[in-house]
Design a protein around this nucleic acid. Sequence first.
DNA 1: CCGGGGTGTTACCTCGGGTAACATCGTCGG
DNA 2: CCGACGATGTTACCCGAGGTAACACCCCGG
Lengths: 208, 208
Amino acid sequence: MSREPRREQLLNAADRVIQREGPSASMNAIAAEAGITKPILYRHFGDRNGLIRALTERHTGGLLAAVRAALAEPLERRDRVEHVLDTYLAGIEARPQVYRLLTHPEPGDPSGAGNALAPALRQIAEEITRAVQSQVDLGADRDLLAEAWGRGITGMVLAAGDWWLETKPCSRTRMVQALADLLWGRLAAAADLPTAVLPTAPAEPAAD
Amino acid sequence: MSREPRREQLLNAADRVIQREGPSASMNAIAAEAGITKPILYRHFGDRNGLIRALTERHTGGLLAAVRAALAEPLERRDRVEHVLDTYLAGIEARPQVYRLLTHPEPGDPSGAGNALAPALRQIAEEITRAVQSQVDLGADRDLLAEAWGRGITGMVLAAGDWWLETKPCSRTRMVQALADLLWGRLAAAADLPTAVLPTAPAEPAAD
DNA sequence: CCGGGGTGTTACCTCGGGTAACATCGTCGG
DNA sequence: CCGACGATGTTACCCGAGGTAACACCCCGG
């Protein structure tokens, strides 16, 4: 028989143990969960990165496809952005442990430089870049802006989503609004607070 | 004599070896660079995380203070934001290896969850949060928005800065503009591209 | 019957973080 | 002067994790 079925079983086992123990689960633990021993894992996946990659590609499929679909929705831009944000947050909410696996770059990456975005997120960033390039009129700077924004937006959602997942300070809907507001320039539009400290007058020290 | 001087020497050695070999340098290598052996390092820093923390706190001081100062500059908001962005990018540009150390979370973090933002960046995020809270009038949602934005902006700059450092696609000034434009809602304000693909008409495939 | 491709095993290597136990030197107080 | 203390340093070791070698089984097609 083709090796695919067993491979799937092994991936399922790895999935379970990572669900349970987090992304730093050892190969031994994964093998044990699958009811086998290490060398078999290595036969199928080469090395740990291979396993992780196979695992991520599996889940990335879903998330990436969902994000891609959301990016292509025929909505007003703001609604589309909210839809994408909601899709991503819903995805990471559903499977926190797997999500950590997706977002954490491999610890030991001696060859190249340590990229802040894991491969799965890199793909999402590229997706956003393409969407911006093809849908938004940005003038001469379009390529640079689209690339920088793709990475930037992805990183923003990664960090903010991570925090949200951790502390759950509000509903998903509100979080989507908060991030969309940020992207919509609400930071630029809001008024100054009148109570702002004056730089030249260190009058009464407030706190800190 | 107090242990501080030796500690400084050890940190200097660690600094050199990390500058040379990247953040994954082994304790052995660091000890060798310092001309001593491992146990001494452990006496001074407890464990690897302790060393890394001491190292990061050292450099964080500079970057964090610079960012904090930039956040407090008496400029128009847009100029202030650009100033902060430029400060951060200049900081990571100056010492790429150290910057990776700052931004890469410790690989093995079994206890808590794997936070996307390393401690140093967490501090920057909090700094931004405080600045937004104290300077911008955001209405009833101020706390939530400020926190989410603090993390989000930090993650955005982390990811975008990482990419910029890696590929250097443009000058720092242009990069600052690109990110500030994103935060200023240029994504929202830009016009739709007329050439946008229609969801119901898969006419002629362009170039993937 | 045999051979190959799948399954699986035990036992081992290497390397890195971390520790125990021991030796040394200088200084301070009695 | 001498012992104690606190710092310096050492060698040798433990442990766990990634990774591999060598061997064994099982089934199926020629």
